[in-house]
């Protein structure tokens, strides 16, 4: 008897959920105006940041996120006068987080490319960035053609994964990993011969593992970081560009870049 009741009850719960679905969809449609209104109304901004990507975003020994991207997020929250809520994301899931509104913006070393521009919008650039191929000094890699037949570790969903496929020969053996730490671990443990990643992460990896004798080989792409926002949210985009422009003019970006990346931000594209 009790079992039967439980079944009836759970069926009722399921029915309620199904009945509520059209309401949820309607709520989603009504919400199509700028995220800026929601942010100022709730006095909180949700910003997706990396926590596995030093020096842009990482967790220090006191478990507090820090890095270039986190400081940028703090700057934007301060300028908007709202509370900051950090949302940790990985390379592979940062765009879905934005699409599903789990985050208002993505400040996560996001590079701009046509594939991404189809699904989200970008603000002006806020940080310098380049991706390259790195490998042991003993291995001769002079051009992308030399990658043929070699194993190259890349982080799935990262820019280098998409860009390398366009320039490297077809017989390049890609090993794709979920996040940068796994990609680094695979290279450090010798599971891949070469690794494609950002210059900043590679510098950190080489500094911590001098025994590898690894060095810079090739530049895949100079791709400064942009802030990603929901497609078509022009009000938010204008506001963010205003903040980035001011930070660029008053030297804040250069100061942050010097602190985290060891060189000034320099000229960044709009």
């Amino acid at each position: 008897m009790r079992v039967a009741l439980a079944v009836v009850r759970s069926r009722r719960v399921a029915l309620t959920i199904f009945a509520a679905l059209p309401l949820l969809a309607a709520a989603g449609a009504a919400q199509a105006q700028s995220a800026l209104d929601a942010i100022t109304k709730s006095k909180t901004i949700k910003i997706a940041v990396p926590t596995d990507y030093p020096p842009y975003g990482f967790v220090d020994t006191s478990m507090k996120p820090q890095g270039y991207d986190i400081e940028m997020a703090e700057l934007i929250a301060a300028k908007l006068g709202v509370k900051l809520q950090l949302v940790p994301v990985s390379s592979a899931n940062r765009i879905p987080y934005l699409q599903t509104k789990k985050a208002d913006l993505v400040i996560s070393t996001l590079g701009k490319n046509p594939e991404r521009e189809k699904v989200i919008d970008f603000t002006a650039a806020y940080a310098p960035f380049f991706q390259g191929v790195f490998g042991p000094k003993s291995m001769a890699v002079k051009s992308f053609a030399d990658l043929g037949g070699k194993t190259v570790g890349v982080t799935r969903g990262a820019m280098e994964d998409q860009e390398l496929g366009k320039v490297a020969p077809a017989n390049t053996d890609y090993k794709r990993f979920e996040d940068n730490n796994a990609t680094v671990a695979a290279f450090v443990s010798g599971q891949t011969q070469l690794v494609a990643m950002s210059g900043a992460v590679a510098a950190e990896m080489i500094r911590k593992n001098p025994q590898l004798g690894a060095e810079y080989k090739l530049t895949i792409k100079d791709s400064p970081c942009f802030i990603g926002i929901a497609k078509g949210d022009d009000a938010l985009k204008a506001k963010l560009n205003e903040i980035i422009g001011a930070a660029r003019r008053d030297g804040t970006l250069d100061k942050m870049s010097l602190k985290w990346l060891g060189k000034p931000a320099g000229e960044l594209p709009l």
């Binding site: 390379s91 592979a92 879905p96 699904v119 799935r156 969903g157 794709r176 979920e178």
Partner: peptide, 11 residues
Amino acid sequence: ANLIQSRNFRA
């Protein structure tokens, strides 16, 4: 599935 969604964002 993960590779496909990381390319076309159709998670």
